[in-house]
């Protein structure tokens, strides 16, 4: 059985990824299992930031994490559209190698007006994150 069927919001997450040009530019996709979601950024040459050491660009990693955090808030809420970002703080922990990148986000606090989210990206081991972000989003509908 398709696990996506257990959460009707999963189809909406897919629809957003298809509709948002920048998500298509990155080439990311998401696998939703209930209220859990894993985002996947398949490796592409255009994601490289340093051609000498073949490292992923920090901006590409941060963009991927910001979208993951945003979609996780959308997934666990009943918002009609994805939330708007207030700020993000990125920690670059390890070099991102020229291979697929994965990410998961955790909503630390879902308030009436704002949501606080933590997201981590990894490659070989989830316990050794490449980068992590803390992000705040507006969730109030005004």
């Amino acid at each position: 059985m398709n696990p996506n069927l257990t959460n009707p919001r999963a189809d909406e997450v897919d629809a957003i990824l298809k509709r948002v040009p920048f998500a298509q530019t990155l080439g990311m996709r998401c696998e939703v299992m209930g209220d859990e979601m894993t985002a996947i950024l398949p490796f592409q040459e255009k994601l490289i930031g340093n051609v000498t050491i073949r490292a992923l660009h920090g901006g590409a990693i941060a963009s991927f994490l910001e979208l993951t955090a945003m979609l996780q808030v959308f997934l666990v809420s009943d918002m009609p559209r994805p939330p708007r970002p207030i700020n993000i703080t990125i920690d670059y922990l390890r070099q991102g190698h020229a291979k697929d990148l994965y990410a998961r986000a955790f909503v630390m606090k879902m308030g009436r007006r704002m949501a606080s989210v933590r997201a981590e990206a990894w490659q070989e081991n989830r316990a050794d994150p490449v980068s992590a972000i803390t992000a705040h989003f507006m969730v109030a509908q005004d």
């Binding site: 948002v20 660009h57 920090g58 901006g59 590409a60 963009s63 910001e66 979208l67 970002p85 990125i90």
Partner: peptide, 11 residues
């Protein structure tokens, strides 16, 4: 434009 573009730019 997506925030990630601004992040890439300013970084």
């Amino acid at each position: 434009i997506h925030g990630g573009v601004i992040t890439t730019f300013l970084d």
